[in-house]
Amino acid sequence: MIEPFTVPFMGRALAEIALLALICGPVGVFVLVRRLSFVSDALTHTVFPGVVVGFLAGGADGIFLGALVAGLLTAVVLTVLTRGGAVTDDASTAVLLTAMFSLGVVLVSRRSSYTSDLTTFLFGRLLTVTTQQIAETAALAAVILGLLAVGARALLFRAFDPVAAAAAGYRTFWLDLWLNVLVALVVVAAVRAVGTILVVALLIVPAAAARLVTDRPAVLALLGTGLILAAGYAGLLISWHASIGYGIALTSASTVVLLLVAAYLVLLPAGRLR
């Protein structure tokens, strides 16, 4: 059960997932209560042009910076758009998502190997995570947890009762930007290593599953982190044994997601009983 993780690349993959569990558990709670599933999905797509431009400008090292800039830009634009009101929130999110992603595709389509770039972007390379990437993720995780610790109370208040929070003197616009930036940072921290499929799932599924068995935000966060850790460990183990023992190429990212979804389905009846 432990032995596969003594292989360096498996150990690094587990470390990366553990770091992501630490940040996605708490951030997922806010994604759930603010109904930001679509925003999370959008952010995983909108960092794509940043990744492309970053790669074209600075090679592999430029990807991180490019994704960061694109992610923060999306967070700002989304916050401004959802405040405006002429176009509904979900429509403007959808349009920003498709536009930014298309921009990335247009940029990438000028180069030859464009399908393989796209695939990496979707799946990430969990098994080829480098120590440097783990360090990047750890640094961003520290920033994210710090921002979250300071803002958690205000963000919770705003999510529950935006009018009373504003009456108490909180600036809703800045709180919304705060949370969107947090989600953007999570996406940037995770997307290169684990791909868009896994990031979206980590932000949405654990909190939704935990919500079926608890009402308390702090427990939601802890349970979410626990679920990711468990699914990450089991997913890596299963895809390892499938590939070593049976020669089946199970994508580890997909396996982790499907385990999380399975947890959600198992907990569904529990939520119904309560």
Binding site: I197, I204, V205, V257
Partner: peptide, 9 residues
């Protein structure tokens, strides 16, 4: 969101 993640994965 859960269905999206599940289907995609």
């Amino acid at each position: 969101g859960v269905l999206l993640s599940a289907g995609f994965a």
